[in-house]
Amino acid sequence: MFELLGVPPQVLFGQLLLGLINGSFYALLSLGLAVIFGMLNVINFAHGALYMIGAFVAWFLLNKLGLGYWWALLLAPATVGLVGVIVEKTLLSRLYKLDHLYGLLLTFGLALIFEGAFRHQFGVSGQPYPIPDALKGGQNLGFMFLPNYRGWVVAASIVVCFGTWFAIERTRLGAYLRAATENPVLVQAFGINVPVMITLTYGFGVALAGLAGVLAAPIYQVSPLMGSNLIIVVFAVVVIGGMGSILGAIVTGLGLGLLEGLTKVFYPEASNIVVFVVMAIVLLIKPAGLFGRER
């Protein structure tokens, strides 16, 4: 049996697959951020908190209303999207004329408020959320045991990611959106309601975070801290991919998940900084990010 740097190949394959699973979470979350930044020029710091709220909505639906996972998959993103629409209409829309920093500060403040409120209500240890019956169990792939649920997460997030990419880059609606960010006045002159389009874009972006929250609920504890644990890495992913680049967010998310998986095999202590090392290197060499363009 051959070994690579002292690591048997089946362990390596297993880790790569796990990296892909984590990567699909990164991709889903950074996709929402990239959509929002690309279309609204807002750095949405509340993204992690909204991801957490998505998971809590799923928990609430199951424990208070008796609605299971599949309902949550639909209702939680809708609820989070609605929260997003309200936030955009009442707060964010007042800040577009100002510097980017104000949007960042507002969403950061919102994130702290959301997290604080949930922490006050539920404590930090979080709440359990079971894996849905249909996805229990797993497959023995020979080199590792793959829980069915994790397989489902990868499949679902890849479909959603590429669906979003297609909608924005290849459809007429997406073309309107892209045009509206380039020159909102002109697009409005063609009779398209730009403010509504922007509101819906923000709602959609945060709904993606809510969806990621539901997908994460059965794997991680549903806890008020789950968002802040992840959000910094996700920001790094967006910066590496290039702010606002949809494809960049997807590809970098998956790629960094793989890289992190490898780090966990060869030097586990560094697994939480490897993403930032890559970010520093990318910023030095290509400040706009791997897929971004200079503005």
Partner: peptide
Amino acid sequence: SDFSSFLLQ
């Protein structure tokens, strides 16, 4: 938050 890779090892 993700222990899967450590658990696999």
